[in-house]
């Protein structure tokens, strides 16, 4: 099986869908000639032509609005946000237009908005945000955050085939750092299904995106100390896999919710609520959150290090919870 980077897997997944379905086309800033700011769409223009790989002006609102229009008449647009930070410029079209169409009048809006998010590259407040919760709080959207190359390809294909607007978060830190085996044959990773990355018995760490790797790193470290972490990778935030979450909680009785996003209103809060509601009697300790603090993402390396959750901070929290 070929070994692909996270980024290559996304590119391959998009390419396969474009070959399979002529209604799939790409729209975004610098995605054609330049191949995208991170080169996700490199080679696409040559392969599929300028009618299916469309360079646009810097007009996020128009890009998303145009994608909605195209989707309404049978296309499956895949929109790139150069950075997910700039998705804010298209916010109105996403939350008021795309998300509510089916609920309001029954038309389907099959489109994907994808782009790089996340910190760890000294990008400062406008090239580092994890703003997935803006959309998790918007009924009508689906929100997907892969962590592996395999999932990135399987999920982008599932997102493109989905008949709803899907916001697809790619962690820029993983683009070239994560590689794994990606099958050549057609497959999808269903939206809404979590996956156990590591089985454990003492503490369930529920997380997603780049933090999956952080959790695995901490788990390897803590194993030596006799603390067994289970790592559940949500993969989809909306809808999320409640069954898998509760199963892990019931098994381990203690849970840490880990994400790179800030704390208040983060995914961990939602998960803590569902765990408290549905698995209260299975808890052998407080529900613990390990998240970024409630600040913008700072630029200067010491500040960013402080901001980002990492294996050390997770291990610290896990040790404390294990001895609770």
């Amino acid at each position: 099986m070929p070994i692909l980077t996270h980024l290559e897997a996304i590119r391959q997944g998009i390419g396969e869908e474009m070959e399979r379905d002529s209604s799939v086309f790409l729209l975004g800033e610098d995605i054609g000639v330049y191949g995208g700011a991170f080169k996700v769409t490199e080679g696409m223009l040559e392969k599929f032509g300028a009618e299916r790989v469309i360079d646009t002006p810097i007009s996020e609102s128009a890009i998303v609005g145009a994608a909605v229009g195209a989707a309404l008449v049978g296309m499956r647009p895949v929109v790139e946000m150069q950075f997910m930070d700039f998705i804010a410029c298209a916010f109105d079209q996403i939350v008021n237009m795309a998300a509510k169409i089916h609920y309001r009048w029954g038309a389907k809006v099959p489109m994907v908005i994808r782009g790089p998010s996340g910190a760890g590259v000294h990008g400062g407040p406008y090239h580092s945000q994890s703003n997935e919760m803006w959309f998790v709080h918007t009924p009508g959207l689906k929100v997907v955050v892969p962590s592996t190359a395999y999932d990135a390809k399987g999920l982008i294909k599932a997102a493109i085939r989905d008949d709803n607007p899907v916001i697809f978060y790619e962690h820029k830190y993983l683009y070239r750092r994560v590689k794994d085996e990606v099958p050549l044959e057609d497959y999808v990773v269903p939206i809404g299904q979590a996956i156990l990355r590591r089985e454990g018995t003492d503490i369930a760490v529920i997380t997603y995106g780049a933090m999956v790797w952080t959790a695995l790193e901490a788990a390897a470290q803590l194993e030596k100390e006799g603390i067994s972490l289970e790592v559940l990778d949500l993969r989809s935030l909306l809808p999320y896999d409640e069954e898998a979450i509760l199963a892990s909680v019931r098994k381990c009785s203690k849970v840490i919710l880990l994400h790179e996003d800030t704390r208040i209103g983060g995914m961990a809060g939602e998960l803590a609520a569902v765990i408290a509601e549905k698995a209260f009697d299975d808890l052998d300790g407080p529900i613990v959150r390990v998240t970024a603090p409630d600040t913008p993402v700072p630029f200067s390396p010491p500040l960013e290090d402080h901001f980002l959750p990492n294996a050390r901070k997770l291990a610290e929290a896990a040790r404390k919870l294990a001895s609770y």
Partner: peptide
């Protein structure tokens, strides 16, 4: 910006400067 932001992402009201944000 106390390290919070980089490049020219800083302002100074006394000097009459309002900085950009990345969504230009």
């Amino acid at each position: 910006s106390r390290g919070r932001d980089n490049t020219l992402h800083f302002g100074d009201l006394n000097k009459g400067i309002i900085p950009i944000v990345s969504p230009l």
